[in-house]
Design a protein around this nucleic acid. Structure first.
Lengths: 245, 245
DNA sequence: CGTGGGCTTGAGCGTGGTCAAGTTGGGTGG
DNA sequence: CCACCCAACTTGACCACGCTCAAGCCCACG
């Protein structure tokens, strides 16, 4: 199945056909959004969980004086905060980057899935823990990595996340961020992102053109980034085999 | 009750006497750790959730070349990842800052509490969402705030978090971090933290001495930090009243 | 063919880092 | 109770990574 949500959940936990069916029907009703739009919670109670099925979105914060920080990227298959539906009001600032297809899964549906299938409950918890771990890695990047290291790390992260949902085959993958998006994500200025990208290209590591990321030297890139893929907690096939036993 | 864990949970959700009793007995068996120690998960399966009952701890990451980033602070009442017990192995690097008293609550106990009391389940989810929100605010700080703003923001955050557990009465509160801890938390160098602290003091905002933080001008500090307490989601008394209805 | 968003380049500057040398002060042992 | 000691803090000088401002370019779109 090419549903990235199901694929992602399956990367965490072995799913039964029934689990898979539940997931699929949960995200059946979809909404379409254009690029650079706000994802607004319509009700006072944000009693839904957004799941991105296609396209890229992000969570961001804007300071009073206009400084903007992208706080996380939402790729196909990602859900934002499986538990928000519990909160009265959540100050979500979510925006699309590209056109996006998303499903709004009602809180009760999430609860029902978790209650009916232990595997699904487990998968949703994995999702939360992994996204928390990504957030922490960003903290490390912004706090302690240089500009080149930050970009390199982000590219490794994105490539790995896309791999999980089967969207990275060759050495290149989608990356629909503008340089100014990259700047807002990595706490840099656009100008410096531009120069750093040129440096990475000159060093034969990575190239960015027409919304695609071409990785020429994955190993070098991971070395520069001090990237340790472990934090994304993809289960190896071995682990999965062990689990199903 | 002065149990900071119970107090914190109560700041999220109205608890019944029974809920309170469950929480208290869950953290009855405590462990003591000295300052600057590692909090290590003894088993292969980290099937416990750590709850800090007294003292300060932190989660951190160290890059291969030694650069260190403190990724979050754990204050009394904080639990680290209520759902980790689901994961086979979690690369937690948790360390104490001061002496710490902590409880190791077994996964099954957590599950049982959540199953028996909806309020407790809700409170634990709040805890997770709030800590995620704090993490995001750190991302904003490290990405887009200047050194002075970062420290100011951290001080506002800490003061507010301590208030919740009833540990901030007057204008000053505990802050057992060294300047080098502050540096590792806010992505700065020790030297620059020192100079920035002097600047904040000269501006009459804040003073740091003998492990205590004295806030002279809370309003000014919040203004400088562009601090918006909303993200910590403390429920006002009004909200709590409304909920219990 | 025109327009504007995104990319590129240059010059100058400032925040914050590094290195290195003191100074202070809380905790320990005598 | 004092002396000592080490960690934490402080200060100075210098430097560089990354920012700002400003102008020009490219090309994808209408």
């Amino acid at each position: 199945m090419s549903n990235p949500f199901v694929r992602k959940m399956e990367s965490f936990v072995r799913l039964s056909p029934d689990d898979r069916r539940m997931l699929e029907s949960a995200v059946e009703r979809t909404h379409r959004l254009g690029p650079r739009e706000n994802i607004i919670h319509e009700g006072v109670e944000p009693n839904v969980v957004n799941v991105v099925l296609d396209g890229w979105a992000c969570r961001y914060k804007v300071l009073l004086d206009g400084r903007r920080q992208i706080v996380s990227l939402l790729l196909p298959g990602d859900m934002c905060d499986p538990h928000v539906f519990l909160l009265p009001t959540m100050d979500q600032s979510l925006g699309t980057i590209t056109s996006v297809t998303l499903a709004k899964v009602p809180g009760p549906t999430i609860r029902a899935m978790a209650a009916r299938s232990f595997a699904l409950a487990e998968a949703m918890n994995w999702e939360m823990l992994v996204s928390a771990e990504i957030q922490r890695e960003w903290t490390v990047s912004l706090g302690r990595r240089t500009a080149a290291e930050r970009l390199a790390h982000l590219f490794c992260e994105v490539a790995t996340r896309l791999q999980v949902i089967g969207r990275q085959n060759g050495p290149d993958c989608e990356l629909p961020l503008t340089q100014s998006d990259l700047a807002d994500a990595m706490g840099l200025s656009t100008v410096h992102v531009n120069r750093t990208l040129q440096e990475l290209k000159a060093r034969g590591m990575v190239e960015l053109r027409s919304k695609r990321l071409v990785i020429h030297d994955r190993e070098g890139l991971e070395g520069l980034a001090l990237f340790d893929p472990g934090y994304l907690h993809r289960r190896s096939d071995h682990d999965l085999a062990h689990l199903s036993a």
